[in-house]
Simulated assay, not measured.
Amino acid sequence: MGCDGGTIPKRHELVKGPKKVEKVDKNAELLAKWKFCALSQERLRRPIVSCELGRLYNKDVVIEYLLDKSAERPNADAVAHIRGTKDIKELNLTDNPEWEGERRNAKGDIYEDIHRGMFICPVVGLEMNGKHRFCYLQTCGCVFSERALKEVKTEICHKCGDPFEDDNIIVLNGTKEEVEKQREKMEERRAKAKTKKSKKTKAAESESTPAASKGAAKPPPADTAGRSSMLNGDGSSQSAVAGPSGSSSSSKSSKSSTSSATKRSIQDLEEKSEAFKSLFTTHSSAKRSKDQMSNWVTHTPYHF
């Protein structure tokens, strides 16, 4: 069967075979990882930060994400493990003097080397373009090539002099296996940090509870102790609980009771004479009737 014009279709035009697997261009992949932000896909510009998995971001983009996580972003999975600014580290990068960037003249036909890196290793001088493995230190954020760390073995940073350990080294844009290993290390560090926080909180609670128990074990004040003992009718318990203050208060109360008792019974004492008894107001001579009582008179009366 033919089409218009007498053309005869061939077999590969009618029968569709299996689709060919599209191969990712390595150069494009390197450009996307080492020259563009992993979240916004914009060109990297200072300040540049990295996470614990070794991905590169623009700092302002990550801060915008942390401020508003509800906003829809195409590459939100790349920053799902970032909880705050403590999970990222600003990188201390060394500029490549041969990289012109936007400074070069774009007029005319100029060959542009896509493998030219914006930054280099300060020790060996290798370009940070994806062909060489680079890593950074979590302590200070300085970036070096892996070759420099292997050739010049030291426990001090080559650039700023801060000490570091092997666990502080994080590979930038590593392979899938390396990313999984770094993710496991990240989870271990976070778990250790949680245990430390829980221990600190428990220690603070244990310190506060003995102080509260000591405050609760203090004896009640003398007044309350005396009142409770008076209600119970136990004088000995008052002296034992209240201490010296309780004993002084009990002695005062006993003196007042004895003095009142003597005042009330002074007239009944047969040993005392009538002259002595007449000195007190309780004597019969001190009592007067209503007829004997005079009215109140002012010194300067006024009559209107």
Results as ranks from 00 to 15, higher is better:
G2I: 11
C3H: 04
G6E: 07
T7K: 11
K10V: 10
K10E: 12
R11D: 02
H12R: 06
V21C: 02
V24Q: 05
D25L: 02
D25N: 14
D25M: 00
N27Y: 00
N27Q: 09
N27L: 05
W34C: 01
K35C: 04
L39M: 13
Q41P: 07
Q41M: 12
L44G: 03
L44N: 04
R46E: 11
R46I: 08
I48F: 01
V49D: 04
S50W: 06
L53A: 00
R55H: 09
K59N: 06
K59D: 05
D60R: 02
V61Q: 07
V62H: 04
V62E: 01
Y65A: 07
Y65R: 12
Y65K: 09
A71H: 03
A76S: 09
D77E: 10
A78C: 11
R83G: 08
I88Y: 10
I88H: 05
E90L: 06
N92K: 14
N96M: 02
W99Y: 15
W99G: 05
E100G: 04
N105F: 01
G108F: 01
Y111N: 11
D113I: 07
H115K: 12
H115V: 08
H115T: 15
R116Q: 09
G117H: 00
M118V: 08
F119P: 02
P122I: 07
V123E: 07
G125F: 01
M128P: 02
M128C: 15
M128K: 12
N129S: 11
H132D: 09
R133G: 06
R133V: 13
R133W: 06
F134K: 13
F134D: 11
Y136Q: 08
Q138R: 15
C140H: 03
G141L: 03
F144C: 09
R147T: 15
R147F: 11
V152A: 13
V152D: 11
C157K: 07
I169E: 15
I170G: 05
V171L: 11
L172D: 01
T175V: 00
K176E: 12
E178G: 00
E180W: 04
K185W: 15
R190W: 00
A191H: 08
T195K: 04
K196Y: 03
K197V: 07
A203N: 07
A204K: 13
E205V: 08
S208E: 14
S208L: 10
T209N: 06
A211L: 09
G215W: 04
A216S: 05
A217G: 04
T224L: 03
A225D: 04
S229R: 06
S229N: 05
M230N: 09
G233K: 08
G233I: 03
G233D: 05
G235F: 10
S239E: 03
S249K: 13
S250E: 06
S253Y: 05
K255D: 07
K255R: 12
S256C: 05
S257A: 14
S259F: 15
S260W: 12
S260E: 11
R264T: 15
S265W: 15
S265E: 14
I266K: 09
L269C: 14
S273Q: 02
K277I: 08
L279D: 06
H283N: 14
S284E: 10
A286E: 12
A286R: 15
A286N: 15
K287A: 15
R288F: 13
S289T: 14
T298R: 09
T298W: 03
P301Q: 12
F304Y: 12
